[in-house]
Design a protein around this nucleic acid. Structure first.
Lengths: 225, 225
DNA sequence: CCTACCGATCGGTAGG
DNA sequence: CCTACCGATCGGTAGG
């Protein structure tokens, strides 16, 4: 029960195949070590970016040797890509999943936006949202595998918001004559701005401002029902 | 004629005192070198951030020796602070000044937003907007002189937007019962989102999306006149 | 403005 | 998972 519909979650959370377990538990211990490295890496990168995430610093923080940590990944790029996946898991857990329990419609969109703002307010990553940091870091850099994953995730989140707006329109909650992608752009803009201001000024009043703007916008789109 | 009113511009552009000129022109040459260094630094930092802006790389790009360039500033932090001032001059020229020729009111607000979006579209800095890059870079770092200047500039821009909205309200163009700071927050959010999406996806259609959102929002605030 | 350095740190490797 | 390295690059200095 309460199993989320598979459509959105699978694209956003790209489930890794489970790794076969060794009899002595070595593999499980290795995976647990790897995951704890990656969660620390995601927090560090949410502050310093994925380039500022250095292997030496991460190793010191975890009480490991540099080469011991390095052996888990093989290259810095592999570490960066694995860190993005770990951060995605945390994001899905806090922002995407909770509102899945509500029926499709305006209420679900509003809950999703509240969860998103709450995730900012609670600083689920050490430096605010991991994804805002890395989007800004890679947005004007040359193409690379890391940049590609970052843009794919950004597109996916906007597409996810767009689908939720569409569903609310289909449910008769929002004016269906307005482009759902346009509304999703505006909602994304308000969330991102709240995050940016909060990280910079530490004033939680910005969340009220964002909620007001979201509510006002959705009110103008409310179908007479 | 066409001299901009001093109120907003001086706070945003913090005019440096003119340096006394030496008879042999050495000082002028020195200042010109310094400014060309800083403009290159601002472009580099708009891509790589103010930490990624390394003295060695900047020197190579300008065909100077590292220590020759370094001598102009004395520390990396001084270079970073001077680079922010140079970037501010460029921003004011492209975004703040042009709409000053229009009378206060809704038209001026809309022109300001068009100039801002045009500045993004034209990639006036090599990596999009210098200020978005450095805001994201420093937003979750520890306090420092550089971070302080970055937040001051961010506050100043929001305050500037807020004043322009207020003036449009006073001119009777926009509903005066809505909080001007709330409207400024929303306008800032839409501009910043357009920048982010454009840098990441290279799709200029996002500017139409932003303009549509800005226009729609201001229409809901239009006083019946 | 230059050459020639400094100690620290970077990503990565050798060998165990 | 470790110690012990590597060449490159960092910010910064000495001396001119």
């Amino acid at each position: 029960m309460n199993a989320p519909p598979p459509d959105d979650l699978e694209t956003l959370a790209r489930v890794e195949p489970a790794v076969a377990e060794e009899a002595d538990g070595r593999r499980r211990r290795g995976n647990a070590t790897r995951e704890s490295i990656l969660q620390a890496a995601a927090d560090l990168a949410s502050v310093e970016g994925l380039e500022g995430l250095t292997i030496g610093r991460l190793a010191t923080e975890l009480g490991m040797s540099k080469s011991g940590l390095f052996a888990h990944f093989g290259s810095k790029e592999e570490l960066q890509l694995a860190t993005i996946e770990a951060a995605r898991r945390r994001f899905v857990e806090h922002v995407v999943k909770p509102s899945r329990e509500l029926p499709r419609g305006r209420e679900r969109v509003e809950q999703l936006m509240r969860d998103w703002l709450g995730y900012y307010r609670n600083e689920v990553f050490a430096g605010g949202c991991f994804f805002h940091t890395v989007k800004a870091e890679f947005d004007s850099r040359a193409e690379s595998p890391v940049r590609q994953v970052v843009t794919d995730d950004a597109r996916e989140f906007i597409a996810f918001l767009t689908r939720e707006v569409s569903k609310a329109q289909q449910a008769g909650d929002l004016d269906a004559s307005v482009d759902a992608a346009q509304v999703a752009f505006e909602l994304d803009a308000l969330g991102a701005a709240a995050h940016q201001h909060y990280q910079l000024m530490h004033d939680p009043a910005v969340f009220d401002r964002a909620e007001t703007a979201i509510h006002t916008r959705l009110e103008t789109l409310a179908s007479g029902s």
